[in-house]
Structure formats: structure tokens, C-alpha cells
């Protein structure tokens, strides 16, 4: 029972949406760290073994960078939109 009319008690749906938002942002933040770690590892592996460009080494590096940028963009977009 809502005794104070100034306090708005969220509905179950509103509460669930709030939890989804918080969980989504935390997971995206953690995933961004993981993606950064992955691209750093790829860079360090390329200093351990030097593969020729024709073997697709450049494709992997570019994809890792693009992937990091996509995850970063999605994190920022979610932070702004949600």
C-alpha cells in the first residue's frame, strides 16, 4: 500500500527494465575489456611469430581492431540511449 503519494513505486516491468539496463551496461563494460585484451594479445603474437601478409595475418589484425571499435561504439551508444 502506497502511503506517501510523492513516492512512486515502480511496477514489476519498470523494475525489470532497470535491472536489464544496469546488467547490460556492466556486461558491455566487461566485454570491452575482454576485446581490448584480445586485440593486445594479437598484437603481441604478431611480435612472436611473423607471418606473411598473404597468410591473412593483416585480415585478423584489422578485424580485431574493427571489432574493438564496434564494441566500444555499442557501449557508448547504449550508455547514451539507455
Amino acid at each position: 500500500m502506497n502511503l506517501n503519494p510523492n513516492i512512486i513505486i515502480p511496477t514489476f516491468e519498470q523494475g525489470a527494465q532497470l535491472y536489464v539496463r544496469i546488467a547490460l551496461l556492466i556486461m558491455m563494460g566487461l566485454y570491452l575489456l575482454f576485446t581490448f585484451m584480445l586485440s593486445t594479445k594479437i598484437r603481441s603474437l604478431n611480435k612472436t611469430v611473423f607471418l606473411p601478409a598473404e597468410s591473412g595475418e593483416m585480415v585478423i589484425r584489422i578485424f580485431a581492431l574493427l571489432y574493438l571499435l564496434v564494441v566500444l561504439s555499442l557501449f557508448i551508444a547504449t550508455l547514451v540511449i539507455v
Binding site: Q17, Y31, F34, T35, Y67, V71, L74, T78, V82
Partner: peptide, 16 residues
């Protein structure tokens, strides 16, 4: 507003 980032994030994880 919430489901689009959620689905996008899911597919990014699958791609990852």
C-alpha cells in the same frame, strides 16, 4: 530502445 542494444550485444558476443 533497450531490446536493440541487447540483441546487438548478443550477436557481438557470438561474433566474438
Amino acid at each position: 530502445m533497450l531490446s536493440v542494444p541487447l540483441i546487438s550485444f548478443y550477436y557481438i558476443i557470438v561474433l566474438g
